[in-house]
Design a protein around this nucleic acid. Structure first.
Ligand code: SF4
Length: 384
DNA sequence: AAAACGGGGAT
DNA sequence: ATCCCAGTTTT
């Protein structure tokens, strides 16, 4: 089995026809690679979090949804979403037949909303091309939207029991410490190399158990900040534990760029029990989410003027400011914003342009909003 | 290779 | 305030 991919497009590692003893991991010991799986798996069988909802199944659809939700997302945060999602869409065909906005609404609050879009798209493809069953094949999975090297390998190993190496942040961190890999783990080279090592490590083990065991080790013991080496089942094999005063110095991390900050003004316009909202574009940040019309602070303008001008350009509607509602601060992945909410009024009941719509207040609960809009709306309802 | 893409919890 | 999480896609 191979799932190593070259720079960018992974196929899980291609190692030709080399035998075990010929596998070369540089200074990574073959003996160590071969001796680690057993204690790791024994520890996992005794100490894993058996209550995690996705541990109760090997249904490829459910494993897929769990892996998708867990991308860059903490276990505790994903659990309620996993339950709600599978209650709403119990099977892959049910997901495929669902309305895209319904899928997005269930995902609301979980972040990285492209994942919801991909889940829906992939489900439709699988229903059409694979009779509703996720393909039992790495390359076919990789071809589906949202299936990168990790997710494809995770489904192949965890659900289908095939020996594909699933390299996630946990597995990568454990490898960094186990073999004192001082390279930057984010490069294509490092990923390829680490996937190879993983493939060697999982040889001879049950792939489903091994994949979950290594990830669980990274989550429970070999944590980013303070690894609990004294409880670690592979302590004896671990070079970082043996040679470094503090294994937590690995993996090395690159310094981050500072986040820019923007001020934003937004207007809340209500008329005849309806509120004027704007749907965000189909791509990019918070794609297809709804929000209050407004925009970034304009140079040499007041916040109120900014609100009025931005509101007009997004909706075509002339408004005047009637009151200030609240100020909401929020942090996204790459920037921070401070949003100034105002109540606004207009002359008649004009029809909006673009993606702006009058939404009945009773319908708000069916539309997806991010935390900023929710905070603005809540403050508005409270103040009225 | 780098940037874009959310939100929350831990330190 | 900073890090980073069961990563993938686009640029
Ligand atoms: S001994 Fe410590 S550093 Fe090494 S794998 Fe175990 S928890 Fe991680």
């Amino acid at each position: 089995m191979k799932n190593i991919e070259n720079g960018g497009t992974n196929s899980n590692v291609k190692s030709g026809s080399r035998t075990d003893s010929a596998v070369d991991f540089g200074h990574v010991s073959v003996k160590k690679v071969n001796s680690m799986a057993r204690p790791l798996i024994e520890w996992f069988l005794g100490c894993q979090r058996k209550h995690l909802p996705w541990r109760k199944t090997k249904d490829p659809y459910r494993i897929w949804i769990s892996e998708l939700m867990l991308q860059q997302t903490r276990v505790e945060q994903a659990i309620p979403y996993y339950r709600r999602f599978l209650k709403a869409f119990p099977t892959l065909p049910r997901l495929a037949m669902a309305n895209q906005s319904a899928v997005l609404k269930v995902w609301e609050g979980l972040g990285y909303y492209r994942r919801a879009k991909y889940a829906h798209e992939a489900a439709r493809i699988v229903l059409k091309d694979y009779r509703g069953k996720l393909p039992n094949n790495y390359d076919d999975l990789r071809a589906l939207p949202g299936f990168g090297p990790y997710t494809a390998a995770a489904v192949m190993s965890i659900a289908y029991g095939k020996p594909y190496a699933a390299l996630d942040g946990n597995a990568s961190r454990v490898l960094s410490r186990l073999f004192i890999l001082q390279e930057d783990p984010t490069t294509a080279d490092a990923k390829r190399r680490r996937t190879e090592i993983l493939q060697g490590m999982m040889r001879g083990s049950d792939p489903s158990t091994f994949t979950q065991a290594l990830i669980e080790l990274g989550a429970l013991l070999c944590s980013p900040r303070s690894p609990r080496c004294s409880e670690c089942p592979i302590q004896e094999s671990c070079s970082a534990f043996r040679y470094l005063p503090d294994p937590a110095v690995l993996p090395i991390r690159k310094e981050r760029k500072k986040k820019p900050h923007y001020n934003v003004s937004a207007g809340i316009l209500e008329r005849d029990g309806r509120i004027l909202l704007k749907k965000r574009p189909n791509t990019g940040l918070l794609a297809n989410f709804w929000e209050f019309p407004g925009g970034k602070q304009l140079a040499n303008r007041s916040r109120e003027e900014t609100c009025r001008i931005r509101f007009k350009s997004e909706t075509g509607i002339e408004i005047r400011i009637t009151d200030k509602i609240c100020v909401v601060k929020h942090e996204f992945t790459h920037f921070r914003i401070t949003v100034h909410f105002y109540t606004v009024a207009c002359q008649k009941s004009p029809s909006p342009k673009g993606t702006a719509r009058w939404i009945r207040k009773g319908s708000l609960k069916r539309l997806p909003f991010n935390l900023v809009s929710k905070a603005g709306l809540e403050a508005y309802e409270r103040k009225k």
